[in-house]
Nucleic acid binder design. Sequence first.
DNA 1: AGAATCATGTAAGGGGTTACATGATTCG
DNA 2: CGAATCATGTAACCCCTTACATGATTCT
Lengths: 181, 181
Amino acid sequence: MIKRPSSEYALLGALMTGPRHGYEVNRFLGETLLSTWQISTSQLYTLLKRLEKDGFLVSAIEAQDTRPSKRVFSITQEGETAFLEWVHSPAVHARDLRVEFLAKLFFFEHLSLKGADKLISAQTQSLESARNRLFHQRKDEKDPYRDLVGSFKLATLEAWLSWLENEAAPYSQMRCNPDGI
Amino acid sequence: MIKRPSSEYALLGALMTGPRHGYEVNRFLGETLLSTWQISTSQLYTLLKRLEKDGFLVSAIEAQDTRPSKRVFSITQEGETAFLEWVHSPAVHARDLRVEFLAKLFFFEHLSLKGADKLISAQTQSLESARNRLFHQRKDEKDPYRDLVGSFKLATLEAWLSWLENEAAPYSQMRCNPDGI
DNA sequence: AGAATCATGTAAGGGGTTACATGATTCG
DNA sequence: CGAATCATGTAACCCCTTACATGATTCT
């Protein structure tokens, strides 16, 4: 699977519940993912156009009487596949947690997907292995500055691991599986 | 003071100890700040050119017998002023901690500057006020997803505050003021 | 009457990346 | 003899942002 710019997945996710035109997608993202993922209006239209060019969306113009006509986008099979693969995979780089991982959790609830617990444990494992690698590196780190940098990364990783356990896991249990099945 | 792209300050800092040509700056950054700040070679030359155009650097070509001639850059008064202002100011956005704040600590030691403790306490105050703002916002946050996002940001801020206290502060005391004066 | 909403875009620029080009010298 | 070092750049592309353009309609 070719890597695509991550912001496109926000748009694919917004179209997973059915066709929408650009303005609606924009409003939807503003109401739900604003605290996580900010996509400017002009960028939104650019991304939609590119996603259609690449076969992840198809569009049709819809005329209106009293309003400007609008271009309604629908997600294709290929688009759905790409979105579902993305949403089930942990963020590869730790720096993608804040935006991408949080957005994935959002879509799990918004689309009533199952397996949020699996995503969380996969993400936990990914961060744990990063932490272990860092731990080893730091053992024979002579340079005090690089050691300080290591301590910063380590502190961040550990905070995020705690957050995954104490906040993300309970949230997903409550929201994505409210009856405890 | 007009805001400049932050990666330029790495170059200004590299020239604070005296004139260097591009290749040397590149090597210096690769040996010292690689774990923090990655600047590609081509970008380096672009930045040096722009810094000269804007009056922060001046350059002179130096011919060599057995080697390609090189362009040696020196920092101007304006450049020094800009660098010193930058290096003494805390990172405005929390996301700039990883790169910019760590780099500032590096330069404090590398250039034997005084006042690293002041920078650290200013940065601490900045993060604390961000944490307090977030704390207030979260009190009347009804939406569970936005609350989760808030908990992530809070966890990150608190980890960094601890790191400032337990790692950065001792490091700067040891490195920038080894005799405890 | 003026502001907000609906609706879609283009243009310009900013900061960054990778790939490519050149060419001598010195090291293994 | 080939690889790494020295040394400087250009070209193309990528993602993104801000500003601008348009124009009807509905709310205050």
